[in-house]
Design a protein around this nucleic acid. Structure first.
Lengths: 232, 232, 232, 232
DNA sequence: GATGAATGAGGCTTCATTCAT
DNA sequence: GATGAATGAAGCCTCATTCAT
């Protein structure tokens, strides 16, 4: 999840302009990410985002249609980065079993949360609101995300590796629910606020990366140990 | 989930006044529930809530300090009803194993979602925002919810029935994540708006009550079928 | 200025009712006096006055037409008490010169301010507003006050004791201006708030009763000492 | 009393912007002055001030923090103009006796009232309320005003020209009281509303400018003519 | 007469968005 | 393209007043 794609080379005057434009757009997105993470979407002020991005208020409207559009664009941007990272992780295990791909998916997702807490905070907290207050927003990247996860499960079910009694899209939802809830708990328990250095008073923090093992364990074997005999 | 007014008998004029007062308070809460479910907290208008409740705008402020307080009170009210129902379900299985209690917990929760979709919508969608924009709000009922779930798991771990390698509070979060995500998916997929009280048209995309079995299955045995042998 | 006329004897059931009624009316007035003094008319809440008076909000409207009427009635009540006290002071000096009557007037006025700071605060601070926001209010008691003062001056002018070059009603205004401004300065500099015991941070206080001598000195001889020879 | 913008020369585009800004600020202040004079502070509506100033409601909040701040800023602005005019008048008589400076002070003050009735009305009527309902407001310009007046008196007392038995700050208060009360009487007696800019109809009850002589007379020699012998 | 819960009109203020420069 | 001052619609909330009990 390498946000802030500043590494792209300029190769010509037009390209430079375009790079400038992309640069400014990305600066605004990244500022919005921090401000939304700090205050939440509704409490965030467009003028504060502009200030954080180092542009004038009006400039934002040269790049985004509205405040809503800014949030949607931020979703699209960050979710597509998430999806790209997840796809890469899966492709790295192309020949592995769906179960192993699923494990890679889970670990990669939580690692992304760890690396980009501001993005995670926005995705985790604002995603739901958005689906509510923006009826017309289809959230294609989130759909793609679920589809990717569902596809792994379907593949496993077809191979007989994964319990076929649960519809794959429901299983995908459940797994996403676990990941999302852990992300939320972790993000809100972070002791230092993301955007400012000021310490807050938040409960104990846990290791979100290590938590991947717990998710894998639950998803793989469940919690029941009463009568079962496991393979070593 | 009709716990309104907790069965206290009226025994005199004062009691009648109190009942009146509770009645109106509950009418406002229930109106807020529908309006928040319809528009979301931020887009909801206090005056629309008042109209829905059949009271004047100002009356709301006789019962709640502010719009924020109305949301918080709604959380408290509905979550405590949820907790009461869950506690009842667990107590009904006092002598059962923690695993069975866990199943009862899951089934009861999703049944409540089915019975009270508006409450579910508010709890599911607004809960996260609220923890963000209301820093000072402790959300004690949600903490109690998690504690109840964690206690079941801890008990199972102590008896050896439940995998002890996952911290119980993390396991509780994961299970809640599944339930919450399924609720969200179900609530948002309903085609007729909840806010109109007219029942009868529920073309939901999946059966949230049946989904309880899937959650139980996943939580109990996980998804992995590659090497395992199950009891029939 | 014996406010709270509680000393009137009851002499029959009807009289008792009437006394009751007057009592409650006066309790409300006196509560209003304290609350207006504490917060000012606009910031004062009718419900706080009711609470201070120990009656229900609605009861106030059995005795006064409106909040405005309450203020006007308070003016009338207190100013007529002031006027009565001033008239008494003048009558005590019926045979004295107008100049001496004027001195008595001044001393009595400032003594009343000292004795009834809450009344003084309301009269001093709210009187002006009232003449502004209540166009229809004639303020007859204040007119009577000025007339009384003007009459003394006119009498003195007719006897040749008082400089006839200044219209008496203008002289009356000037003298009232001095008294009013000193009252204001004194009332606002009081270190303990009138209605609550909580100490405030106010500048030095001076002796309002002693200040009467200064007013008398200025009104009598003016400030100029450059060329004049005074009688001892 | 046209001190708007203090004579600073424009010398460039930035300066023009600043002038624009000051212009609009002053336009709002002057609109507020008229509206406050017409209705009083509390009854005045921010939207009416905006309309009178020819700006949008929100624009007012670009220049002033709140309606309260608008009133305070108006005080500061007008009182500092008053103080500047008074200082100029005193400086014009630098070599004169304090007594003559005092006369200049009085005449200048009442001339200002005559020239700027709306400002006078606001200062006269709202000043007291403001010191009450805005506890935190120090009113530095009014303090400066009193200090200036007190300094003249102190100087006269030190030279032996002015009666030393009255504390100078008390004498200053008394003189201000006279001026203020005369202003009030004059301002309220004007039959045509100040707010309509139409001049020409001023059937005032007395001549406020001539009244300066009466104030001077009273302050200089007092009213007592009983035993005294005056210089012709 | 007394109560106090309920009313509802209306104001101050915010802030996303625009547009002249 | 960039700016940021100006806009003005719209909401939360207050509180004087009423009226059923």
């Amino acid at each position: 999840m390498t946000v802030h794609s500043a590494g792209k080379p300029d190769d010509g005057p037009k390209a430079a302009d375009k790079a400038d434009r992309n640069d400014k757009r990305e600066r605004i997105l990244s500022a919005a990410e921090r401000i939304f993470a700090k205050h939440g979407f509704f409490a965030a002020r467009v003028s504060e985002i502009a200030k954080e991005a180092g542009v004038a208020d009006g400039t934002i409207y040269l790049y985004f249609k509205s405040k809503d559009d800014l949030l949607i664009s931020l979703f699209e941007s960050r979710m597509s980065q998430v999806n790209a990272a997840l796809e890469a992780a899966i492709h790295a295990e192309t020949n592995a079993s769906p179960a192993r791909q699923l494990h890679a998916f889970i670990r990669t997702y939580l690692k992304l949360v760890y690396d980009e807490p501001a993005a995670a905070e926005v995705l985790t907290i604002e995603l739901r609101q958005s689906s509510k207050f923006m009826k017309e927003y289809d959230n294609p990247q989130f759909v793609a995300f679920l589809r990717m996860l569902g596809a792994i499960i379907t593949a496993g079910q077809e191979r007989g590796d994964i319990d076929p009694s649960i519809p794959s899209h429901v299983a995908a939802r459940m797994i996403f629910g676990m990941l999302d809830e852990l992300s939320l708990a972790w993000v809100l328990s972070r002791q230092t606020s993301i955007s400012t250095g000021t310490p807050g008073t938040r409960p104990k923090k846990f290791d979100i990366v290590r938590a991947a093992d717990w998710v894998v364990a639950l998803v793989t074997n469940g919690l029941d140990r009463s009568l079962k005999e496991k393979s070593p």
